[in-house]
Design a protein around this nucleic acid. Structure first.
Length: 272
DNA sequence: ATGGTAGCTGTGCTA
């Protein structure tokens, strides 16, 4: 029974709940992972999603900023919502998803800090926070790799706020000094990936040199004409499970929906 | 040379 998982930075779930409904209606992913919900848990619009069949909901939200959520048509169990960097930001939630055959898939949903404008951790605390967040992810997954019983049925999704490859941005050379594509970030993200051997299944299905983006700035006059995008949203799968991923989709068209998020959904399907 | 838009908050911050 295939398991499909979507990830989407929704930029306010209350403002754009109708767009999540549209995603559910048109693509029916089994699980929807959201970032930037900007919504305290007590005010999350549960009912609209429950009515669509997403009856299993786990939240880690806060007022105004950040916030992550998992909506699922399959049974899920909460595992942890880790407070990275010792501050209260809601940027991670982890659940176990019932795989329909007596097993489970561990699912991490991340919202990595954007990092501000200046790519120098000595003068920009937001950039220092971003790099520290990546280092903590690396240490955490390295510990998981070395654990007595490591999970090799795991999926990591989210807005990682880094475009790792040259073809993940509209201009590699022009963005090398722009936060999201600097070498210190892409190298840091590569250490996170390598800590557990995560497989970037989106790029396995849509390899370079094809350009691939999941985010376009609101500030462009015409996002589609300029097409100055970046691939900030990712789906990674643990080595033992990665071969099961038989389909991925980047829903570029969602950037053109009415009152859109600046990010689009990415969906991966696991044939398990 | 450095603006442009968006959301939430509260008269600015974050992205």
């Amino acid at each position: 029974m295939p398991l499909s998982i979507a990830t989407w930075n929704i930029n306010s779930v209350r403002l754009r709940q109708d767009l999540v409904v549209r995603l559910a209606a048109e693509h029916a992913p089994d699980v929807i992972c959201l970032q930037e919900t900007k919504c305290p848990d007590a005010h999350f619009p549960r009912r609209i999603f429950e009515q669509l069949g997403y009856r299993h909901i786990e939240l880690h939200g806060q007022k105004g900023y950040h916030g992550v959520a998992v909506l699922s048509r399959r049974q899920i169990e909460p595992v942890i919502a880790r407070p990275f960097c010792g501050i209260g930001d809601c940027r991670h939630i982890c659940v176990d998803v019932d795989d329909g055959r007596g097993g489970k898939v561990r699912l991490h949903n991340f919202y990595v800090p954007a990092g501000g404008d200046e790519p120098d951790p000595a003068v920009n605390p937001k950039f220092a926070h971003k790099l520290a967040f990546l280092d903590e992810m690396t240490a955490w997954f390295a510990a998981e790799r070395d654990a007595v019983a490591p999970s090799d049925r795991a999926v990591l999704v989210g807005d990682l706020n880094i475009a790792p490859l040259a073809d993940d941005v509209w201009s590699h050379t022009q963005l090398l000094r722009v936060v999201s594509h600097t070498p210190v970030e892409t190298e840091g993200l590569e250490r996170v990936r390598a800590a557990l051997g995560w497989v970037d299944v989106v790029r396995r299905h849509i390899p370079p040199p094809e350009k691939l983006y999941t985010w376009w700035s609101y500030r462009a006059k015409d996002w589609a004409a300029g097409d100055r995008g970046r691939r900030l949203d990712h789906v990674w799968i643990s080595p033992g499970l990665s071969a099961a991923c038989d389909r991925v989709a980047v829903l570029r068209e969602a950037r053109g929906w009415d009152r859109p998020s600046d990010h689009v959904p990415v969906i991966a399907r696991l044939d398990i």
